[in-house]
Design a protein around this nucleic acid. Structure first.
Lengths: 198, 198, 198, 198
DNA sequence: ATTTAAGCGAGACGGTACGTCAAGTCTTGCA
DNA sequence: TGCAAGACTTGACGTACCGTCTCGCTTAAAT
């Protein structure tokens, strides 16, 4: 269930010296998620994360090169056991399932709190960008692309699939960022219909 | 061309005391835009804005309660002379024009630099949120809503119009934030087609 | 009773235009004294004085070139109707009366609050220094000098008189600044005796 | 030679974590003294001290709660290797040596620059007041008190000793603050004589 | 009675210090 | 070597005060 995005996670070989305490990783990520949801991005400081996780600040920086990397992994550093998009039967079905999944994700309070900071990072860090794409975007988009090809409804399925994905993600993000409660639900409910009605 | 978002814009009656120098407002906002484009959000500090505008820091804080408010107005605090959406002939036309306008706006370097910070503010400041909506969202959405009513193609035109707007804005934002150069252009070009094909 | 120390008080000739409102002078000085006693030097700001005196800040700066000048006059800008030192019968008597007067003056809460700032000014502003000396120091010292000459007890009466004055003023100042209540009274009571016992 | 006045000097037990760099303390205090002497109180800012000492501002605020506390320790936070008063043979000798020492101290340019601000602090900070007294006043006064007892010349030696001290310190301070060059020297030379002639 | 020079309160202006706080790095002593 | 504690630098933030200035109004003396 946990599939880390951290860059220095590749080496699983035994290194000399005392091994790192893996419990610290989990505690830190959990603390970051909790703080984001509770007090927002600004007050989710490294010291606060360290205190909440009952861990030292250097232990954090030993694992993640910056606060943003930590939070990035805390928020996106796992994939659910079951990605419902994988079972989509048609393009419309794919859209609907993607909205379900995306709206749900951006509705998580920790994700909402982390989003702006993460967008900034994404803009400046191509490595995280491609990480994210590889994990979330690429598989789903490939699948939609195949479906569209089968339907023969488009001239450039890859581009259309990517654009569709951006429409879904972008609108989901905005709904969650700008709207609250009933308003958010009402608009969310219409989104798939508008996009699907092709 | 400049239509301020500042809240104390209503009273034009002479208040006692030395009146504010409106040149400072303009200089500060222009300085903020320039700095955002040139050096990015992080190095667009209040002192830097003050120096660039040849203005004192307190003069800034007299006008805007925080750096974010200043930048918010610098980036969104004006409407162009001519909003092309106003002349849309149909729903499809409206979508196309909106994409043009929105992609253009989010392509501005100062907007790109400011966006993440502004999204964070938007999440926490309902006042700015409603300001933004009143200025950009509301008129355009109302117009689309009317058009949809005429077409008789929807059951709840207001909701659909709002959802459409979110799709347009969200995807434009993401394209500009995540994609560069040719990739951005290629995807941008497909966006209206996907949404319009209803 | 009020003999102003303000520097631009010399010209009593009619200048053209509206004459200054003398009530403002008194109100400002009184406000300064009150604030010094109530909130101390640091929080006795020009704005606070202006507000307390129900007066504009420029009216203050029209009269005094700086905050220090204002406070200086507020605290020392008057001489009592009756300077008891003038009636001293002997050197010992002079010392005793001077201590009485000086301890009393430095015991005033406004004077205590203003002293440090005033010392700084005195150090840097020779004009205020000579003003103060002319008003308080010089007459009294001259008088003691004469008395000492009559007694024939000293080789350089002017110098001795000045030194004596510094001993009196300095010790009075310190007592009031550093000691409180009973301790201050007890020590004060011994001061004249020590100096007089020659 | 350096005997710190800092309040947390009692515990010499090892606290966890990285210990403070004592070189920073010394560098900061030296920088403060130098700046006071060179540019005066007003331009001895915390940033200037930090720069001169090649140290960060937070390192300063970690050690002293305010600028005044820092400067206080810089100016009074040490005792010379050799306090000449300790060897006084008689009350007169004590007075003479005290004047020597005190006039010398208040003649130091850093002390002269810092005095007014420090007096203000002293008035409001009983803790610094007692610190100062414990270090400078108390030992010397006790000694004089003993001498006076031996002479049998007074009814309350403790009070008289304290009063004498105030006379010495107060007059020395004033001389250094108000007089310059020859005038200061001439008056200073007479001070001990006047007080000693008992 | 009109002019006119100045005073007036309100408050903005530039400049600058203060004290706080965050991020990210470095240094202890211990395990 | 990892770890916790807590030092360190850098540098932004927001507040406050000082002394100056500008506005539109009012006042009293001089015409």
């Amino acid at each position: 269930m946990v599939d880390s995005l951290s860059p220095d996670d590749t080496s699983r070989d035994r290194r000399p010296g005392r091994p790192r305490d893996t419990a610290i990783d989990d505690a830190a990520l959990a603390a970051a998620r909790t703080l984001l949801a509770e007090v927002g991005w600004d007050r989710t400081t490294m010291v606060a994360i360290a205190e909440r996780a009952d861990v030292g600040k250097p232990a954090l920086y030993r694992r993640w090169p910056s606060k943003t990397h930590l939070i990035f992994e805390a928020v996106f550093g796992w994939v659910p056991d079951h990605v419902p998009v994988a079972e989509a039967q048609s393009a419309d079905d794919w859209v609907e399932r993607s909205f379900d999944y995306t709206l749900d994700m951006f509705g998580r309070p920790d994700v909402r709190a982390a989003l702006p900071g993460l967008l900034a990072t994404l803009r400046d860090n191509p490595d995280l960008q491609s990480n994210l794409w590889r994990q979330f975007g690429s598989p789903a988009v490939d699948m939609l692309s195949d479906t569209l090809d089968n339907d023969g409804a488009t001239t450039d399925s890859a581009l259309d699939a990517q654009a569709t994905m951006l429409l879904i993600i972008g609108s989901s993000m905005l709904v969650r960022l700008l709207l609250r409660g009933d308003a958010a639900d009402a608009v969310s409910a219409r989104l798939p219909g508008i996009l699907r009605a092709r």
